[in-house]
């Protein structure tokens, strides 16, 4: 469907810069936009899942990409694409959330994305599955707004600006919620560790 495009046959691989993709997508190069979707669909899908749950996440992310495409002519070319996209994902997710019953809390919605085998070891460092489970349990005790910033910032590893965009709050709020949430989490985890040591001592 890119028949009218001047360089319709051009392919856009992972080596093409994002500014080029955005500029070409704005002129109707579908292939350029498809590469943008390819690059950002993971984070868009997970951000949507964190807000609306796994069931609606695919729909929300897809809708957000279509809306972003429509809005692309009004996107400031010099701005980074991802925070802008995540703002649209966040909006779409919140719109959907009003009409659908949202299940569980942010951490549970994220955890539902896959068969969470907490014992697997993706990183070099080994964290015990018990410790991971304790961390999930500790996050679950936080207020929803704190869970959303913790999940965005550390589990999905969004930047502060991206977190602020997706959750539609000022960066300052992201910072203050994060520091508060980390203090609470640390306390909760210390309590857990102490319990474990007591249990061990009692054996």
């Amino acid at each position: 469907m890119t028949g009218q495009a001047p360089v319709a046959s051009r392919t856009y691989g992972p080596d093409v810069g994002e500014e080029v993709l955005v500029a070409d997508a704005r002129t109707g190069q579908a292939a350029a936009y498809e590469e943008l979707v390819r690059r950002h669909q993971g984070v868009a899908y997970r951000t949507a899942a964190m807000i609306v749950g796994a069931t609606d996440a695919e729909d929300v992310a897809q809708e957000a990409f279509v809306k972003a495409y429509r809005a692309l002519p009004r996107f400031r070319a010099e701005a980074p694409f991802r925070p802008w996209l995540l703002a649209i994902v966040g909006n779409e997710a919140r719109n959907r959330q009003r009409s659908a019953r949202r299940l569980g809390s942010a951490i549970d919605r994220l955890a539902a994305l896959g068969p969470a085998d907490l014992a697997s070891d993706p990183a070099d460092q080994v964290v015990s599955s018990d410790r991971r489970a304790a961390l999930v349990a500790a996050i679950r005790t936080l207020p929803e707004s704190d869970q959303l910033v913790i999940c965005s910032r550390y589990l999905m590893e969004l930047s502060e600006a991206e977190t602020a965009s997706a959750l539609r709050c000022p960066v300052g709020t992201v910072k203050s919620r994060l520091s508060r949430a980390l203090v609470r989490l640390r306390d909760a985890m210390e309590a857990t560790t102490e319990e474990v040591s007591h249990d061990d001592a009692g054996k």
């Binding site: 979707v37 669909q41 868009a44 964290v127 991971r132």
Partner: peptide, 21 residues
Amino acid sequence: LESELNDLGRVLLAEPAPDLV
């Protein structure tokens, strides 16, 4: 704690997202 959270994210989010393209 931050890197433990990063680790948790990589475990929980290991499943590939659906292909929306």
